[in-house]
């Protein structure tokens, strides 16, 4: 059973909760793997993957354009290309884990499974996520809250809220 989440975003800083929700679900994925509960492990990873792709879409199409438009000067460590580049690595890493997880669920006996190398890959991903989420927290979300006029905040926040909720429901209702 996937956990509940409050998708109401009152400001951009609220998206930190969304990032934490993804981290928590990744941890749940790992714990199910430890217990050989493949289906549940896959469900959590699917949720992380789907939400993460949405986060990338949100950032590229909604947040970074607003950031470039309103935030002056762009803080050091908060350059637009850094966000784009890190997204690329994270999605690549998650895609590879999803492919492997799919193989494991379809063919548990025939898919090699050694925990240590796999969980070390997880460590690299978690370190990258941690680093990236800190960048989101200290530069992107904070600057957007401070610099974007209120009239331009509401639409992206409600758009994200609706799409995040819909993805979560879709994955939760899967048989």
């Amino acid at each position: 059973m996937l956990p509940d989440f409050d998708f109401a975003y009152r400001n951009f800083t609220d998206l930190n909760r969304f990032n934490l929700f993804m981290e928590e679900n990744f941890l749940a994925h790992q714990i199910h793997l430890m217990k050989d509960e493949w289906e549940q492990a896959l469900a959590h990873l699917e949720l992380v993957f789907a939400l993460y792709r949405e986060h990338v879409r949100d950032t590229d199409r909604l947040l970074l354009p607003l950031y470039e438009k309103h935030v002056r000067p762009i803080p050091e460590g908060g350059a637009v290309l850094l966000f784009v580049r890190e997204h690329h690595f994270i999605v690549k890493c998650l895609s590879s884990l999803m492919r492997w997880m799919g193989e494991l669920v379809l063919d548990p006996g025939g898919t090699p499974f050694r925990r240590v190398p796999l969980f070390e890959e997880h460590c690299q991903l978690k370190d990258l996520l941690d680093h990236h989420h800190a960048r989101d927290r200290y530069f992107l979300f904070k600057s957007l809250d401070q610099c974007v006029p209120d009239r331009e905040k509401e639409k992206p926040l409600t758009d994200m809220e609706a799409r995040h909720r819909s993805i979560w429901q879709k994955i939760r209702e899967q048989p």
Partner: peptide, 14 residues
């Protein structure tokens, strides 16, 4: 718990 095991493992990785 599994969480404590993961915490230790993550630190061992570094």
């Amino acid at each position: 718990t599994p969480r404590s095991a993961l915490d230790l493992f993550d630190h061992q990785f570094r």
